[in-house]
Design a protein around this nucleic acid. Structure first.
Length: 572
RNA sequence: CGGGGCGUGGCGCAGUUUGGUAGCGCGCAGCGUUCGGGACGCUGAGGCCGCCAGUUCAAGUCUGGCCGCCCCGACCA
């Protein structure tokens, strides 16, 4: 490709509001352009990277027996009504009506469609197991797109679906995907960690995410120093060390706490550490009032609350809800609460003495004891944090930021039961198909590759995913001898199947070098007056690891060898 | 959805406070000089100032409404 005719111009400056390195560099390097909030075009450079990522994914999913197909972007509402997600995804899906008033949506993901096909096409256990997949556009009307390609409203996902006769089969398919994902991310050049995650509204119970640790990533990940536990904060637990149960705790007594409605204020005025208090949070769980009692130094984790209690929606309570529960905001406590489901966080120690709200303005109760003064459903619903102990080994947990590039879910029979996708098993019984769902966001993966491979000048593409393998520069292009030698090299590269971007623009050396650094092709070949004098060209690696001069007639072969070595290393 | 910010040639921005000829840098076109890290000179093209109303002799600037984009939070496979 001659750069003078490449569609897409590099920009000297990125918009001042771009935060992530990938956002700035992909924009400046003419890889992507924004069309609307969270809606992006991949220009030729970006598109070539996306295609390479897709090919890596394709090869690895094929390797575990995946069959590629293609399911539609436009989905009828009826299928989503069968699974119940037509309503539960509100208002996150793009919806519209056709000319006849029928409801449709842009596929949010493809569980419904694949399950509908499976109920037609799979009739016998003899056909199983099956893995099908496709690369397809998804639409999600995210409330807040952000971070360039990281959170967008339209994106291509590789989603595969495993269909098995039983859970042992599902476990096997899940493991195959886990291994395939490890190879995919390694080949793409990103360090993706598998972490335990919350299945959310996907249905099913077991789920893992592949997270690339990136400062500025939007997910919070807790990692044990001993390497045996990694979890998304939406799911993470910690080893809880119960305070010693105290004997002879005096009867609970009311104390005056005028104006002290937060744990911080109480802690300051009563000179007691925050974990001596109980924090009671009044919420509406799917419309029903519930009071969640937490240690005073802990925050409620809504994702965990939803998952543990099987709730779809958590909202904070209104003043009216406080009155109904017989309490008052700022002074709520578990003792004497009415009309509310009481949930006690696992971090609250049974038998220990706490200070809690008295459900009366400007008053708290001292010596409140779980098991004596109140009781409730125990659930681990607090936020784990940096410095907590690992639930497996007691090691120290650290908090990191990450970007989720892929996920794997054990759906089980969630969709097959709802959509009545059954097969006839060996014993003659009709049974629901056992399914799994496995996604990788291609654009997001592209962004994380950049996050992991760049410097202050630009991108440093790994060979396996670089839009072109070689950047050929002339200094200057107006010199006839230089141009002739470079034209010759360009032809040789093309002949040899080397992917080459030829900077044939009549720009100064500074401009060409700066653009080459920005675009970040792994190998740079420079033909200049200086090198031509000796019948040579300069060969430089973008990562700075090599810089040499080679006779013009040996450049193509040498470069080809470097490429092949690097590709082989990435695939191994 | 709550809070904040922004919208002016292709890009990055000033001008809005105090209404009065629409600017700067980069980029772009032509000519010439230069040529290993974002060169220089001369000439030139390019703007419904986000949109719609209103106030005014006069609106980029004031008022109202709307739209779009960004950031923080909420939410989110």
């Amino acid at each position: 490709m001659r750069q003078s005719h490449l569609f897409g111009r590099t920009l000297r400056a990125a918009p001042s509001d771009a935060q992530l390195a990938s956002h700035k560099l992909l924009l400046r390097g003419a890889f992507v352009r924004q069309v609307a909030a969270g809606i992006w075009t991949l220009e030729p450079l970006g598109f070539r990277v996306a295609k390479k990522l897709e090919q890596i994914i394709r090869e690895e999913i094929d390797r575990i027996g995946g069959q590629e197909m293609s399911m539609p972007v436009i989905n009828p509402a009826t299928l989503w009504q069968e699974s119940g997600r037509w309503d539960s995804l509100e208002p996150n899906a793009f919806r519209f009506r056709d000319h006849d008033g029928r409801d449709f949506m842009i596929a949010f993901t493809h569980e419904e469609i694949v399950t509908a096909h499976a109920r037609e096409d799979i009739v016998s256990y003899r056909q199983l197991p099956i893995i099908v997949y496709h690369f397809q556009t998804k639409g999600r009307d995210e409330a807040r797109p952000r971070g360039g390609l990281v959170r967008v409203r339209e994106f291509v996902m590789k989603d595969s679906y495993s269909i098995d006769r039983d859970f042992a089969g599902l476990d096997a398919a899940y493991e195959k995907h886990r291994d395939a994902y490890a190879r995919i991310f390694a080949r793409a050049g990103v360090r993706a960690l598998m972490v335990e995650s919350d299945p959310g509204n996907m249905g099913g119970d077991v789920a893992h995410e592949f997270q690339v640790l990136v400062e500025g990533g939007e997910d919070r990940i807790l990692i044990c120093e001993n390497g045996d536990y990694r979890a998304n904060a939406d799911k993470a637990t910690r080893k809880i060390e119960p305070a010693l149960s105290q004997n002879g705790v005096p009867k609970a007594s009311r104390i005056a706490t005028p104006g002290a409605s937060t744990i911080d204020q109480l802690s300051a005025s009563l000179k007691e550490p925050s974990d001596r208090f109980l924090k009671t949070v009044l919420v509406k769980l799917d419309g029903d009032i519930a009071a969640v009692v937490l240690p005073g130094d802990r925050e409620l984790n809504e994702a965990k609350l939803k998952a543990r209690l099987g709730a779809k929606e958590v909202r904070f309570a209104t003043d009216a809800d406080f009155s109904r529960a017989g309490s008052v905001a700022g002074f709520i406590g578990p003792v004497g609460l009415r009309n509310a489901r009481l949930i006690v966080d696992a971090g609250v120690s049974r038998g220990a003495s706490y200070i809690a709200g008295a459900n009366v303005k400007d008053a708290h109760l001292r010596d409140v004891v779980l098991g004596r003064d109140f009781e409730g459903e125990v659930a681990d619903v607090h936020d784990a944090r940096e410095g907590d102990r690992c639930p497996r080994c007691g090691g120290k947990l650290t908090m990191h930021r990450g970007i989720e590039v892929g996920n794997i879910f054990k759906l089980g029979t969630f969709y097959s039961e709802k959509l009545n996708a059954m097969y006839l098993d060996e014993d003659g019984a009709r049974k629901p198909l056992v399914m799994g769902s496995y996604g990788i966001g291609v654009g997001r993966l592209l962004a994380t590759v950049v996050e992991e491979h760049h410097d202050d000048k630009g991108i440093i593409w790994p060979m396996a995913v670089a839009p072109f393998q070689v950047h050929l520069l002339t200094l200057p292009h107006t010199d006839e001898r230089v141009r002739a030698a470079a034209d010759q090299l360009y032809a040789e590269f093309e002949q040899a199947g080397v992917e080459v971007l030829y900077d044939d623009r009549e720009d100064s050396a500074g401009v060409k070098f700066a653009d080459a650094d920005l675009i970040g092709l792994p190998i740079r070949v420079i033909v200049s007056r200086r090198t031509i004098e000796k019948g040579e060209a300069e060969v430089r690696l973008r990562d700075g690891s090599k810089e040499l001069f080679a006779p013009l007639d040996r450049v193509e072969r040498g470069v080809k060898t470097m490429i092949d070595e690097r590709l082989a290393a990435a695939t191994a």
